[in-house]
Simulated scan of single mutants.
Amino acid sequence: MDKSTFKQGMAYLSAAYSRELTKETAAVYWDQLASLQDEPFMVAVRQAVGHCQWFPSVAELRRYYRDEMRRRRMNAGQVIEYKPANKETAKKHLDKLKRTIRCRTK
Results as ranks from 00 to 15, higher is better:
Glu20Leu: 15
Asp38Lys: 07
Phe41Asp: 01
Tyr64Ser: 01
Arg102Gln: 13
Ala76Trp: 05
Gln47Asp: 06
Cys52Arg: 06
Arg99Val: 09
Lys83Ala: 15
Phe55His: 02
Glu60Arg: 04
Lys83Gln: 14
His93Glu: 00
Gln47Trp: 01
Gly77Glu: 06
Glu24Tyr: 11
Glu68Cys: 04
Arg102Thr: 04
Ala76Gln: 12
Lys91His: 06
Lys3Cys: 03
Arg99Pro: 05
Tyr64Arg: 01
Val43Ile: 13
Val45Ala: 02
Tyr82Gln: 11
Lys7Ile: 14
Tyr29His: 07
Leu94Trp: 00
Arg70Asn: 05
Met42Leu: 12
Phe6Pro: 04
Tyr64Met: 01
Tyr64Asp: 01
Gly50Val: 04
Ser35Thr: 14
Lys92Thr: 07
Lys96Tyr: 00
Ser18Ile: 12
Val28Cys: 05
Trp30Ile: 11
Met1Ala: 11
Thr22Phe: 03
Arg66Ile: 06
Lys7Pro: 03
Ala85Pro: 05
Arg71Trp: 03
Glu68Phe: 02
Gly9Arg: 09
Ala27Asp: 14
Thr105Asn: 06
Met42Asp: 02
Met69Phe: 01
Arg99Ser: 13
Thr22Tyr: 06
Ala11Gly: 08
Phe41Thr: 05
Glu20Gln: 15
Val43Ala: 04
Leu13Phe: 12
Arg66Phe: 09
Gly77Gln: 04
Phe41Arg: 07
Asp31Pro: 02
Ala85His: 11
Ile80Val: 15
Tyr12Gly: 06
Val58Phe: 01
Ile101Trp: 00
Cys103Ala: 15
Lys87Arg: 14
Tyr17Arg: 09
Arg19Ser: 14
Arg46Glu: 09
Gln32Asp: 15
Cys103Trp: 08
Ile101Leu: 03
Val45Thr: 02
Arg102Ser: 12
Val58Asn: 03
His51Val: 03
Arg72Gln: 15
Gln37Glu: 13
Arg70Pro: 01
Thr25Gly: 06
Glu20Trp: 10
Lys96Ala: 01
Ser14Ile: 10
Gln53His: 03
Ser4Gly: 12
Asn86Phe: 06
Arg62Ser: 03
Trp54Gly: 00
Ala16Cys: 11
Phe41Gln: 04
Phe6Tyr: 08
